[in-house]
Design a protein around this nucleic acid. Structure first.
Lengths: 235, 235
DNA sequence: CGCCCTATTGAGATTCATCAACTGCGGTGG
DNA sequence: CCACCGCAGTTGATGAATCTCAATAGGGCG
């Protein structure tokens, strides 16, 4: 879980377009205002961005790469709460401390915005404020779906739901391939399963011809309808 | 799950103190402003307050009794996301629709506030706005803890964590008794277990003398430290 | 080419779910 | 006042799903 090679570069950007150009606008939308007061940072694979319990001085937006947000139990058990892709915002906390640990799934570029700037901007711009509120509620709603998955779905249903989620997020259809920026262990920790169970479920879907697995980090959707049916429990 | 006897009475209150007096102030705090534009309603045990997918025209505050928020799968599997006690706010949604179903655990009294009033007040009062934001973030943080429970804890740990949560919420110490307004099936659906497994775990804790079970709806805390240790996985 | 890391597959152990019987309590009515 | 009924909870026996442990495979990189 440790990574020696990773280093962390900060670089100050003037303002605006260069950064904005890299962001999928459908996700960040009007939060663009934040970019004007943000700093770019870079993290290597498996590097920690912040730990649960750290002072929550900054919020972040993913620019490139992927991030996982997780909780660790004292004996090492891990639960991943969320995978973040470009455009996603994280580290925007209730209290003084981060409630989750953030780690880079792959090499990742993030924009960092200080808490005070965040608050100032959201006080000044009702639009930004509403967006942040709406962001939180969407996250809450996503967490609730995640609860159903962990509490009431079988292993196969969880893995399938996960793939369907990714497919929807990417707007993928039959024949398209999905990128899996995370490893199998990450998927297992997101789904509350072991890595072996995840593998078996994937192999199973593959031999049923619902998916293809051209490489470790790619899955081809072959029959999205069937996957959606399995995800909801219609065998 | 259907209940014939339950009926629903609405009654308009003038303003203020009579209602405020019934509320535990530590929870609602300055959200008191909402009370001035709220309506009181009453629901019987197991009665539905709103369904997932219903138009989210109102937000609610529990005044007396308990409420469960849950998700249902098409085949009847149920996951309870949250139990609400007096002072808790719910039904404050991201989109046009409620993302969860709300049902009365017992006979319950709620204050209802229209979405438009809610938005107007939160636009006019920065304090209320910040409180709602903070409320959402606390809920999100609670949901994340719930994810760990469902994804990574054993049955015994889950049941124990649940009791510890209740004890903390009630500020209970060794020797104190907790009220369990919900039934065993509700607990099971909250913890992602079956009713039998919940029973066995409770019986187990009882025979280890960590708790007492004077009645169906009460649990006596005998050794909170030991319970907390089990909840975290220190056998 | 060979090593290392990740993923996959296999066999046996364990936890929890399922199915079924029984208990205890509160309410109702004789 | 007591007997019966019904529901919620508890306990027991069995089985299935998933975890654990172990061996094997595959891909990228020095």
């Amino acid at each position: 879980m440790s990574d020696a090679f990773a280093t962390n570069h900060d670089s100050y950007y003037p303002i605006g377009e260069t950064i904005a150009a890299e962001l999928p606008t459908h996700r960040t939308g009007e939060l663009a205002a934040l970019q004007t007061v943000s700093t770019m940072s870079r993290f290597g694979r498996n590097q920690t961005i912040f730990n649960e319990g750290d002072d929550a001085n900054y919020s972040y937006t993913v620019v490139a790469g992927g991030v996982r947000l997780c909780k660790l139990m004292s004996d090492g058990r891990r639960q991943i709460a969320e995978f973040l892709l470009p455009g996603d915002i994280f580290g925007f906390e209730a209290g003084d401390e981060h409630s989750l640990t953030a780690e880079a799934l792959s090499d990742v570029v993030v924009m960092r915005c200080s808490r005070s700037n965040m608050e100032r901007i959201s006080d000044e711009h009702p639009v930004v404020r509403k967006q942040l509120l709406s962001l939180l509620r969407r996250e809450l709603s996503a967490a609730q779906d995640h609860l159903v998955m962990l509490g009431r779905q079988t292993a196969k249903e969880r893995v399938t739901s996960f793939l369907v989620q990714l497919a929807e997020r990417a707007g993928a259809a039959n024949g398209d391939s999905l990128d899996l920026p995370m490893g199998r262990q990450d998927i297992a920790d997101y789904l509350g399963l072991t890595i072996e169970t995840v593998c078996r479920a994937l192999s199973d879907l593959k031999s049923s011809r619902l998916i293809g697995i051209p490489s470790r980090h790619q899955v081809t959707i072959r029959n999205l309808d069937a996957l959606e049916a399995i995800a909801v429990g219609d065998e």
